[in-house]
């Protein structure tokens, strides 16, 4: 018995079977685990290493290499503000401070209730919406004091 539910195990197995080679599903499976547990823990790594027949050190390498995967839990909503050049020119630094103030946490932290975490992002491909605001990998348009407060209100 693993620490995943039977249904979750099925989903992970689905990623293992989806591509022509099993290993090609690993990153997607890790993304899936990140979504469920808001981080990838030791147990998860062990489980996926076995499922994908891949050495554990390389699984851990992936988790630490890709910013989308985290070792410590993020919030249910991962809020990000881009600080790439176009966004920086449009005042992303001030918007980051605004977000930190609104959430009461610093970048890289999670609110105590586990609802939000805030990250500064490298370019998210939305320079036309600078400074770009993103929640759980979905672009939310430009960050402004108003859009930030509306967003935080809106999310259940």
């Amino acid at each position: 018995m693993s620490h995943f539910s039977a249904e979750q195990e099925q989903t992970l197995m689905g990623w293992a079977r989806r591509y022509p080679y099993r290993i090609m599903g690993l990153l997607e499976a890790l993304r899936q685990v990140q979504e469920w547990r808001r981080c990838v823990g030791d147990q998860d790594e062990e489980y996926l290493a076995k499922l994908f027949d891949y050495p554990r050190n390389h699984v851990h390498e992936l988790v630490t290499f890709f910013p989308g995967l985290t070792l410590r839990p993020t919030g249910r909503y991962r809020v990000g503000i881009c600080r790439g050049l176009s966004c920086a020119l449009a005042g992303s630094a001030a918007m980051c401070r605004c977000m930190e103030k609104s959430l009461g946490i610093k970048a890289g932290e999670t609110t105590p209730d586990g609802k939000f975490s805030f990250e500064t992002m490298e370019c998210i491909g939305a320079c036309d919406h600078a400074p770009a605001l993103i929640v759980n990998d979905k672009l939310q348009g430009a960050a402004s004091e108003q859009s930030i407060s509306e967003l935080l209100e809106r999310l259940p």
């Binding site: 030791d42 050495p55 050190n57 851990h60 390498e61």
Partner: peptide, 21 residues
């Protein structure tokens, strides 16, 4: 035996043990 890995990336990347090993 796969105990070691290159964790993180860029300048903050380190050689280290797999957690728990």
């Amino acid at each position: 035996s796969h105990e070691l890995g290159i964790f993180g990336r860029g300048h903050s990347q380190v050689i280290d043990l797999v957690p728990g090993r």
